[in-house]
Nucleic acid binder design. Structure first.
Lengths: 340, 340
DNA sequence: ATGAAAGCGCTAACAA
DNA sequence: TTGTTAGCGCTTTCAT
């Protein structure tokens, strides 16, 4: 069982044509059950395994789905990927995963490589940097289904899966206000990514709705990179007004801010109330527990996988779907508790 | 630029043979620079992209590396994967990633699928459950390079990449002892996985070296699944002797234990000193900061990727390498601090 | 330095 | 229900 056995070998053994063997192996309806059985048994016996290269070449499809994410090593992304993998694996699709590391350049290369690899579909969460979308139009122009999740962009015929970031931002902000905050700061990711943009807009709307004035000092646009929170902390300390509420677009960043602020003598939530985003595990480890917005990563992955596969199977037509919104949820915890 | 352009099209345009085009595209030495140039320009101009299926079929290799991990959504694994992806991507290899979810069954299926997909090599970190290795022998018998990382197993000709878990366990334990602990408990993962087994052995050796008796009550074998720490906490509370030192094979689990113990009135590190494993981000978020063993996930991924690729390129022969040990490091933090 | 031609192993349209 | 046959697009040996 070491040399490659092909359908020709099986055909010879069974005195049938290779075509019959091929059909039998693929459970083609027009093959009699008896020969089908014979084919399968001899295949098993001979240790036959189909050569995907040949099948792919012939069918011009690969049973493979490409995925591009900003980074593999983020908790949120890994839960999404776990979800995608789970459904893809179940129905026999392979996943080729690559990361852009937030670089537009790398994202372009990845997109090209995956295209060359003949993926049947592409799932993308965009890099922060990305401003041009030509590399993705190569897919749409070839009718290769393309779906965005989380970091989405509105491209014709490309559905998106995400949560209602605006509403979530609104709720998070409203929560801070209802807990007594009036001098808020929103620490955002790059605003050219719609996820952050919309949270920000929800934030602004909430301020407005509560007659709290907004100006540029109420927003800090960052990379949300925890290794460089110092400038953020400085910003907070040097603020003219005493900031009493922080809405931070990432739990991880928020947790690190809390640690640092505590180190500088701030009491959370007494001096500053903080709400994060994502419901990352750290949010329950940090003291005080971090209030946050639950963001269903695994579910998002499952849904992305299911959607794209259903589309590939022709079960549903994704083109007509514009976007799928997942439910988010405000989780009130200690970091925004009222103090007496 | 929508229809597929093949080397035949290019050949026709250039009045040369397809073979020449193929060689030119692959920078074959026997093609004159001038025609090579012509070929490349026309290829670009026509938007030619090589059909990987055909190339794969012809060459019987895929430029793809398979990866099987227990779970995608663990911080440690995601850093490893990020490392692998980084080097693979750089040299044009694709990564097909799948997860076993700790199930031997699923691992077998994944291995088979990846084999069928024609991966050029396989990187594996084993599921907890796995006890039989036939599914992997399919690779070795076909001379497809197979490399284990982290959760390894000793299979002929399959190199392993890991840290010296025994030494790490020894150091962690010794550290607890030197901080004044004498009634230790080791909370381990499943001992049939060598990583855990060896940490445990290092632990036992350290006890022995310090004349601390060991019996079964000094070990608790678990799944290290943070959703079910209750039994662990019960075990600690109900112990006959007052446990004063905990060596836990996972930071995440350790962090959750700390939270729970604190809830039950324990003071850490005063009542119990705790050391974890991995240097997961939570270890620096939890209060008190968690002492731990630094486990270089990203580096491990990079090394695994580099090794397997070098082997595929024929640069080095991995078969002769048995195992690669990465450096670990004891990180002393608050959770094991002496209290006065 | 280039060309001719035989695969690589499977699929599918068309026949029987 | 099964067989014939012609690809799928690229690589590679053997000629030239």
């Amino acid at each position: 069982m070491d040399k490659k056995v092909t359908i020709y070998d099986l055909a010879a053994l069974l005195k049938v044509s290779p075509a019959t063997v091929s059909r039998g192996l693929n459970n083609h309806p027009s093959i009699s059950d008896s020969t089908k059985k014979r084919i399968h048994t001899i295949a098993k016996e001979q240790g036959y395994r189909t050569n995907k290269f040949a099948a792919n070449l012939s069918k011009q499809k690969s049973n493979t789905i490409g995925v591009i994410v900003p980074r593999l090593d983020s908790y949120f992304m890994s839960t999404v990927l776990a979800g995608i993998e789970q459904v893809a694996n179940k129905v026999g699709y392979n996943l080729i995963i690559s990361q852009s590391l937030e670089s537009e350049e790398k994202e372009k290369i990845n997109a090209r490589t995956l295209l060359n690899s003949g993926v049947d579909a592409l799932l993308v969460s965009l890099a922060n940097e990305t401003k041009d979308y030509e590399h993705l139009k190569n897919y749409t122009s070839r009718k290769i289904p393309l779906l965005f999740f989380d970091r989405v962009f509105n491209l014709p015929n490309c559905p998106t899966i995400l949560i209602d970031n605006r509403a979530a931002g609104y709720e998070a902000t409203t929560h801070l206000i209802s807990q007594g905050c009036s001098n808020l700061l929103h620490i955002s990711g790059r605003l050219n990514r719609s996820v952050y943009k919309e949270r920000f807009e929800g934030y602004k709307e909430a301020l407005q709705a509560h007659n709290i004035p907004f100006d540029d000092t109420n927003l800090l646009e960052t990379d949300l990179d925890s290794t460089k929170i110092k400038t953020t902390i400085e910003y907070i300390k040097n603020s003219n007004v005493k900031i009493d509420g922080l809405f931070i677009s990432s739990d991880n960043y928020a947790a690190n801010c809390i640690k640092e602020l505590q180190k500088q003598g701030y009491q959370i939530p007494r001096d500053i109330k903080i709400i994060g985003f994502n419901n990352d595990p750290v949010s329950e480890i940090i003291s005080p527990n971090l209030s946050t917005i639950e963001y269903p990563g695994h579910k998002m992955g499952v849904l992305a996988g299911e959607s794209i596969i259903a589309h590939l199977n022709g079960t549903i037509n994704l083109q007509s779907t514009n976007s799928i919104l997942l439910r988010h949820q405000l989780l009130e915890r200690e970091s925004t508790q009222k103090t007496i």
